[in-house]
Design a protein around this nucleic acid. Sequence first.
RNA 1: CGGGGCGUAGCGCAGUCUGGUAGCGCAUCUGGUUUGGGACCAGAGGGUCGCGUGUUCAAAUCACGCCGCCCCGACCA
Length: 440
Amino acid sequence: MRVSRFFMPLLRETPAEAQIVSHRFMLRAGLVRQASAGIYSWLPLGHRVLRKIEQIVREEQDRAGAIELLMPTLQSAELWRESGRYEAYGKEMLRIKDRHDRDLLYGPTNEELITEIFRSSVRSYKDLPRNLYHIQWKFRDEIRPRFGVMRGREFLMKDAYSFDVDADGARKSYNRMFVAYLRTFARLGLKAVPMKADTGPIGGDLSHEFIVLADTGESQVYCHRDLVDMPVPENVDFQGDLTPYINQRTSLYAATEEKHDADAFAAIPEDKRLAARGIEVGHIFYFGTKYSKPMNAKVAGPKGEDVHVEMGSYGIGVSRLVGAIIEASHDENGIIWPESVAPFRVGLISLKADDPKTREVCEDLYAKLGAAGVDVLYDDTEERAGAKFSTFDLIGLPWQVIVGPRGLANGQVEVKNRRTGERQNLTPEAALNLLTRGNG
RNA sequence: CGGGGCGUAGCGCAGUCUGGUAGCGCAUCUGGUUUGGGACCAGAGGGUCGCGUGUUCAAAUCACGCCGCCCCGACCA
């Protein structure tokens, strides 16, 4: 993509409403624009990041055996009356009437709808287990939206729902999501710690929140320090026994404030105690028959008896993750994207767009990087060099290739790593080689 | 929803107390000089002062009502 043809409205000054660093950078770098309180338009740069996160989430859900579908944003109130939550949910739920005066709602979550889909189609325990998920916009009419996309009213969420014939199976489904989440957050460049959590209005007796540690986090959390850098399971057999991965983590203390046990925390060796702020990026629940009973979701068991299915639900805040990643990865100059979610992998900066030699080298690199499958944002404008440097540091692409007459006099371009600040002077061929390595 | 604050050009703000017909910086456009870390000079464009009602010869400024947004608290992926 050429900057001269892209749509990337940057702000040089920070809008007054942005209080935390991720919100400031998201506005300044042109990732989002607020449409109204807690509701955002995603501009091209932000949209690319959102899609990349979504894709990683999708791949790890699929790997763990979950199956994607797509449910609507608007739901009929009828189903919610069945579960009793139409009354219970309160003002957080946005209620709408259609032209026939029928009650609709903008879904804050989808347990009722997925249960309806399941109960109308599945009859036998032989069709279990199943885990169905979708990635869809949700709306919760927060009393006070804040922190940009971290606490919006409209947000993109991955929510999965598991169905099992018994509690033992449900526990296995829960464990599969637990491990899938560890892998997902690691791929997003985050250190997320699973913590014992409050189940809230969704209910149930087994629940973990996945917390990214950040000073601006909304939750107070307590855990054993070793959990933070614990390596992520590789080459997982999701059909096999996952309990060792779970036990490894749940045997160490980790809890959010609601579930905090001061005595258990004090039992941790002092140098391993960690009390910190955190951002909740995922939440998994096992809630048994909470919805299958009132909504009568049953299958025939092995002996021909009717059993209410055992369910769990598993959320990841996709749009919130954009903010969380920035909170966890930035410096004073701007965002530092992990390679896996960067809107472009490489920024190609022409320092003198009207110099024939500079342009020739840039165009050649742009074409060859593109041909090698590398996402490149090529600044071909006639802006001044300093402005371009500031822009690219702000938008945080992992690599910058800086091309100008001064370097080309020695046959070299400069490759800068955004995270480390490390610079190398290389021939254009060597730069190309470096940036296409390991990029299929 | 309770408490506090803000709404004036795309962004950041001054002007409001003490009414007199709107200004600064950045951004934008034109011309010129520049050109490796947010250039300089000259000129230009851009504002129903959030909306409505009222007071007044006259309202960004005063009064009342409404709307929007932000911050602190209780709730949440």
